[in-house]
């Protein structure tokens, strides 16, 4: 204890830490303050005459937009659906992969690969090569089996996006859960088996609780990343048909960079930030209560 205090006194750590803290402070506070400020301003890039304080008009306009409720629902559904799918599939897959079968290493590499594919490439593989209603692989397979062809992005736009994003994020959940599972004490498993626990009992009462910490980390990370899903929508459906796949990021992009309505886009940005934090707080609390035994 004394030795630590001695070292700390001899080495001044503030100059080492300050650049990181400073950079992150600026990175967090300046844009956040600007978003807040613009959200109360009248500001449109196409109309320089339009200036001044807007009060809560940007928010009022946004909240009265008949499309907003469905956009919020789409945003949350996208996050939750992908999260539930990736984590539940990931838990099961991690348990299967933990058995140490022949060729486990290679199978695992195949399993995690989609995570390293850049989002625009993933989206285009699915859009063109797989889900295309005329030339896609799925259409070809369905046709040769005599089934009607599905036009994925017009018939099931949101489901299609969910499939693509799940494919991208399942490896992430899988890899983290598998790593967590591999740290499970072998003796504990052995003891449970000696007490007569079968594979299913071991899975539910030992393996799943052991993954609790990893699951809550996943919930937090996925909330943040999935709330910003943009490239997949940009490349495949451009938010359509209608607003069927418009989530908050896409709405903000449309308002800000296509309609140049800075005030309105900023108000939507503030809502996205609030949503991210509320959702993450709620989800993490739920997960923590359920799983941290």
């Amino acid at each position: 204890m004394q030795r630590d205090g001695h070292s700390a006194a001899r080495v001044r750590t503030i100059p080492l830490i300050a650049p990181s803290v400073g950079a992150l402070l600026v990175w967090m506070i300046v844009p956040l303050a600007m978003t807040l400020w613009f959200s109360f301003r009248r500001y449109n890039l196409l109309n320089p005459m339009l200036t001044g304080f807007a009060g809560i008009n940007n928010y009022r306009f946004l909240l009265r937009d008949p499309a907003l409720p469905s956009i919020l629902v789409i945003t949350v559904v996208l996050v939750l659906a992908v999260m539930v799918l990736t984590i539940s599939l990931g838990v099961v897959l991690a348990a299967i992969f933990n058995t140490g079968f022949p060729g486990q290493g290679i199978a695992r590499v195949l399993m995690i690969s989609p995570f390293f594919v850049m989002p625009t490439v993933s989206a285009l593989i699915w859009k063109n090569l797989l889900m295309h209603p005329v030339n896609g692989l799925f259409a070809g397979v369905l046709r040769s089996l005599g089934f009607p062809v599905i036009d994925w992005f017009s018939s099931f736009p949101l489901i299609s996006i969910i499939i693509i994003v799940t494919w991208e994020w399942l490896p992430f959940a899988f890899l983290i859960l598998l790593t967590a599972l591999q740290s499970l004490d072998e003796e504990q498993l052995e003891a449970a088996r000696l007490d007569g626990a079968g594979t299913i009992a071991v899975f539910f009462f030992i393996q799943v609780p052991h993954m609790a910490r990893a699951i809550s980390v996943l919930v937090m990370m996925e909330t943040i990343f999935l709330l910003s899903i943009f490239a997949e929508i940009y490349v495949t459906t451009a938010g359509g048909p209608g607003i069927a796949t418009t989530n908050l990021p896409f709405l903000i992009y449309q308002r800000a960079l296509l309609a140049f309505n800075i005030g309105g886009a900023s108000a939507a940005g503030v809502i996205a930030i609030i949503l991210a934090n509320v959702l993450a707080a709620l989800l993490i609390r739920t997960v923590a209560r359920r799983l941290d035994v």
Partner: peptide, 28 residues
């Protein structure tokens, strides 16, 4: 190597900066 009284707080605060979704600050 030289943890101080605020090390934990600083680390957690750094983590919290990831809670700001990119899209929230697209405009600025």
């Amino acid at each position: 190597f030289y943890p101080g009284r605020y090390t934990r707080d600083i680390l957690l605060w750094m983590l919290s900066t990831k809670m700001l979704p990119a899209v929230g600050v697209l405009v600025p």
